[in-house]
Structure formats: structure tokens, C-alpha cells
């Protein structure tokens, strides 16, 4: 039992310290000793990526490290996935298509969100910045997205998030996708007003909101 607890602590630390090789070794070691992939993720690696998110959010860890931590998590998920019959938990939390809306080229925040979402087991497709709403819909269809996430940094471009909701309704696709909105001027009140399913204040909040709307 103590060994198992120690394994979880080391797994968590391997993510926080962005040690890919160590993380993969620990995942294999855990699986070989009979610990389930789900337990390894839930008690070891996921608390690690959660701590990474908190450290980033408080300015104690930086973007390059965040990205490596995310990539480390992806490697671990791959190893665990291989061990699961039928692909239990991991990267099948849902497909999320992400874009910065048309007219807006600000994507620093989006880059962070993509890393954190991937690290938390979501299958994410980032289609970039300054993306017209019609293209967002087309790409969502191609990707088979469950959720469409949009980011807008400007008060002048956030209106595109409203336009996207209207386009989804017009195309009869509103019920097919969940939508999540974010960006500096965006608020919960805005999300409610335009009819988006969720608002994310930051990347960490986005993970929680994604989990919530995926349950609905």
C-alpha cells in the first residue's frame, strides 16, 4: 500500500517536474505491478497536471514548462491507453475544437488553454486565430467535435462568439455541439446572454467547465 502511495507521489512529481522518461517508466511500472490505468491517472498523473495548472496560474511555472508537462502527460496517457481494453478513460474525454474568432489575432491565452486541455485528456484540435465562423463550423464537422471553444481578446471581436451561436442555430446544429467561450473581455454574463453552454475564466476553469458540460 505504501509502495502504491509512493508510486502516486512520484507519478505526480514526474508531471510537475516535466520528466517524460520518468513518467513513462512509472506508468509502465505501475501497470506491471497490477495498478489499474485509471487509478494511476486519477491518483498520480492527473493531480500532477492539476498542480502544473495551479503553478502556471500563479506565475510559478511558465509556458515552455507547461507545454513540456502537457507533452509528458500525453505520453503517459498513450502508455496507459495501450493497456486498456476498449480504451477506458484517458484521451476520450471528448473532442474539442478551438479557435480565436475572426478579426482577432491574439492567441497567447488559447495556446495555454490547448496545452492544459490536452494534458487533461481531451482530444483538442486548434485551428488557429482569426478564424471565420463558417470555417469553425466546417472544421468542427470534419473533426467530429463534441465541443467548440472560442476565444476573443477584444470587445470588438467578442461579438463573433454571439454570431457563432446564431450560425449554429441557423444551421440547425446548436444541439449537436456544446460551446464554451473565453477571453479577456468575456464573462459568465456574456456567455449566458449569447446562449453559450459555458464560460471559462482561464485554462483551469475551462477544464472544470468542459467536464461539467460533457456530463449534461
Amino acid at each position: 500500500m505504501v509502495e502504491k502511495q509512493q508510486l502516486f507521489v512520484e507519478a505526480k512529481n514526474s508531471i510537475v517536474n516535466q520528466n517524460k522518461d520518468k513518467a513513462v517508466d512509472l506508468a509502465k511500472q505501475g501497470l506491471d505491478s497490477g495498478v489499474s490505468g485509471i487509478e494511476l491517472l486519477e491518483k498520480g498523473f492527473l493531480p500532477g497536471i492539476s498542480e502544473v495548472g495551479e503553478l502556471f496560474g500563479s506565475g510559478r511555472l511558465f509556458l515552455p514548462e507547461l507545454i513540456v508537462a502537457g507533452q509528458t502527460m500525453e505520453k503517459v496517457v498513450e502508455v496507459i491507453n495501450e493497456s486498456l481494453v476498449g480504451g477506458e478513460a484517458k484521451g476520450d474525454k471528448g473532442k474539442v475544437l478551438i479557435a480565436t474568432v475572426e478579426g482577432d489575432v491574439h492567441d497567447i491565452g488559447k495556446t495555454i488553454v490547448v496545452s492544459i486541455f490536452k494534458a487533461n485528456g481531451f482530444d483538442v484540435k486548434d485551428i488557429g486565430r482569426d478564424v471565420p465562423n463558417q470555417k469553425i463550423l466546417d472544421e468542427a464537422e470534419k473533426f467530429g467535435a463534441d465541443v467548440i471553444g472560442t476565444s476573443a481578446l477584444l470587445t470588438t471581436t467578442m461579438v463573433q462568439q454571439k454570431n457563432l451561436e446564431e450560425l449554429l442555430r441557423k444551421e440547425g446544429l446548436r444541439e449537436k455541439y456544446k460551446t464554451i467561450v473565453g477571453g479577456a473581455p468575456v464573462t459568465q454574463r456574456w456567455a449566458k446572454r449569447i446562449g453559450a453552454d459555458a464560460y471559462a475564466q482561464d485554462a483551469g476553469d475551462g477544464v472544470k467547465k468542459l467536464a461539467e458540460i460533457r456530463k449534461d
Partner: peptide, 21 residues
């Protein structure tokens, strides 16, 4: 409120800028 560490290693006058409040 804090300096985002997009680069992460830049220093000014020997002080790492990322994460400064």
C-alpha cells in the same frame, strides 16, 4: 498582475522576469 512566462528564462539585471508580481 504577474509577468507571464512565455519565454521563461529572460532576466533583467540578473532577475528572472517570468512570474514577477
Amino acid at each position: 498582475e504577474f509577468i507571464l512566462g512565455m519565454h521563461g528564462e529572460i532576466e533583467y539585471e540578473g532577475v528572472r522576469l517570468a512570474g514577477l508580481y
